[in-house]
Design a protein around this nucleic acid. Structure first.
Lengths: 260, 260
DNA sequence: CGCCCCAATCCATCATGGTGAATTGCTGCG
DNA sequence: CGCAGCAATTCACCATGATGGATTGGGGCG
């Protein structure tokens, strides 16, 4: 029974790069054909019946249905029954276009440095939102995360510190009423964490002074948010994003670990 | 022949809100079931054969295949033939998670003000990248877009001015080597333009002074990029993002038109 | 003129059976 | 022990036929 295959076999659980190299599946190819046909017409134009389009794609009924399901999910066509029914070209909404363009990004082209840079640009917005919208509950929750950071700092546990750090940032992000901003930011955190931990697990002992000063910076940030001290908060987030380099001699660890 | 149905019938070409209210399709429901099963296990764990999972979902073979195609496209499962084969839980890559979370955003919750705010936060990054990477070709292209802006300003054509304005920004964005940044930014432009033109077409005559000063601001920005004058460029983009309000009395038009 | 009913069109889902490809594991041979 | 071949397992795609639901348009009636 292969249900106990080792979970650490990366090829098993990490999705293969799109389309087994050039061996693209037939439904996927047909879905692209449908999308191309839709793109060549105006939104709302009728493309034809399912059977006409299926013949155009040159696949069987079942395969075409799979392709159509994909195309519908991508928002490129809509389908209607009845006389004059069939497939109609559809315009993807801007949100769908954004989602699809992000999906089309290759993991290789999304470097962690790029992600960090984006995250840094978005941090001030989140701090502004937190200053404006943080409830008592939010502040309590931030304090809980701070305690986790503090505990990790006391135990000099680098991985735990990173997790707690990110949990704090995610919690701050959760305060924002801007759904787009939250979504982007949280996923950027996710991407950064994923990349860092997959590339270079934090094995070494983190520097005590560095980790303490990062903790204190975050604590001050939470206090500034609590006190609604806008200038201080923005100053701190700026410092946060520009003082990643550790003041001590060992640059290797801190350069590799984009701390929050 | 209904191939000539009026293209302006919005219900025809704008995708319906997800899932015809509560009437979710069966393949979509099965795909969610598959995703839930995958989420409940570790990445790499075997979920079972197609037929076992199909029985679990309670659908026919064809419907299950459609669902499976969706689930695979979403990166939640991978499929293998052979003894011990079948469906395996997969971990969505961070990029896929971001794409899916964006797709899950409701258009209503993505307000144009939110989008503008994000765009403004990302503008300085793009300007930095343009300063660093702009080729002669890029500069020529920016100049071409500037000419379009100038022509629109001379003719006092508000819509054309907006289009040219956005085309210039998109061209500046295209210089960046940061694929994520380009993707986000371009889609934000798309979203903003789409929203503004759908909500309030620009019918009124734009103010000559306002439109001229916006043009000149952009011209100065392009020159600063050309001269690689970092301080000047960043100063201009800051001015760009903080001086949208027209200096003249008619605030209605300019408030409604988030100009580039 | 408006509404209802019906017929025609087209789709969503179901069911069944088939071929060929890919994968895994075991056995036999050198 | 390593490699090749083979059998079994499982999937990808194909083909066909059926039922019920949704939609559109036309005709008839009040």
């Amino acid at each position: 029974m292969v249900a106990d295959a080792p979970a650490l076999r990366r090829a098993d659980w990490e999705p293969r790069p799109a389309g087994r190299s050039s061996a693209q599946t037939r439904p996927e190819r047909a879905a692209e054909r449908i999308a191309a046909l839709a793109a060549a017409t105006e939104p709302g134009d009728r493309l034809g019946t399912k059977d006409e389009l299926r013949a155009e794609c040159g696949v069987s009924v079942g395969t075409f249905n799979e392709a159509l399901r994909l195309a519908q999910a991508r928002g490129v066509v809509t389908v209607r029954p009845g006389p004059g029914g069939g497939l109609f070209a559809s315009r993807q909404s801007p949100m769908v276009r954004l989602g699809n363009s992000v999906l089309a990004l290759d993991e290789d082209t999304a470097s962690v440095a790029d992600a960090i840079r984006l995250r840094d640009a978005l941090d001030p917005l989140l701090v502004e939102d937190a200053l404006q919208h943080a409830s008592r509950l939010d502040i309590t929750a931030m304090r809980v995360e701070l305690q986790q950071m503090h505990a990790a700092a006391e135990e000099l546990d680098g991985t735990a510190f990173i997790h707690a750090n990110w949990a704090l940032h995610a919690r701050i992000a959760a305060i924002s009423p801007n759904a787009m901003l939250r979504s982007f930011y949280t996923s950027l955190l996710d991407l950064i964490e994923s990349h860092v931990l997959s590339v270079q697990p934090v094995d070494g002992q983190p520097l005590p002074d560095y980790i303490r000063s990062r903790y204190e910076l975050h604590a001050a940030l939470v206090e500034a948010i609590t006190e609604k001290d806008s200038d201080r908060a923005l100053e701190l987030i700026h410092e946060h994003n520009t003082t990643m380099a550790t003041p001590s001699a060992d640059e290797d660890l801190s350069a590799a670990v984009p701390s929050g």
